[in-house]
Every structure is written in structure tokens, then in C-alpha cells.
Amino acid sequence: MSDFKNLDPLLHSQLRLAVMSLLVSVQSAEFVFIKEKTGATAGNLSVQIDKLNNAGYIEVTKSFKGKKPVTTCNISKKGIEAFESYVNTLQSYIKK
């Protein structure tokens, strides 16, 4: 697995990579949408979203729709750069 040493460990995980791939394709998405599309449990997804948020890869906004609390996520500039760099590194391994 030494080949993977340059892959960002924060992105090199199934669920976090799935979340980032979803968010890179849209302007913003609600927590329930991400949960539905990734098939993750709410607890697990919440932990991974926190990790991505703490790394500055995504931005998390909490608001209300009527009386219902809503968590919305969007990818940050830093997140886009990290995602692009991850994909480029992946491509360079495949080309080898």
C-alpha cells in the first residue's frame, strides 16, 4: 500500500470520499440528501461531516425550515483543491 502514501488520508475513506464527490457536483446539499445518496447512518455521516468541516474542506450551515432544523453542506475552495489533487494523484497511479 505504499503507493497510496500521497493520497490525502482525509479523502481516502469510503464515506468521506462519497460526501466530497457529491458536494463537488452541487452548490449545496442538505444532510438528509447526503444520507440518502450515500446510504450511511446518520451517526456515522455526522462524524465524517465534522471531520471534513474541521479540515476546512466543507462548510456546514445550520438553519430552520419552518420549525424543522436543517443542516446544509457545501464544498469549500480548499475542499475543491484537495479533491482535485486527490483525483490527479489517483489518475497518476492508474497511468503507471
Binding site: F4, Q14, R16, K37, T38, G39, L90
Partner: peptide
Amino acid sequence: MSTESKPLSNQESLDIITRMIQNAKGN
């Protein structure tokens, strides 16, 4: 979807990216 316990292969990473980008397509 599990988290990070097992290492991802190149192909698995690509599959996740492709599937999720496809999934993100709106209605």
C-alpha cells in the same frame, strides 16, 4: 456505507467518485 476501516483500492475510489457524481444529478 462503511467508513475507513478497510483500505480503498484505486478502482474502489474511482467507483465511489463516479457513482456519487452520477447520484448528484438532479431531477
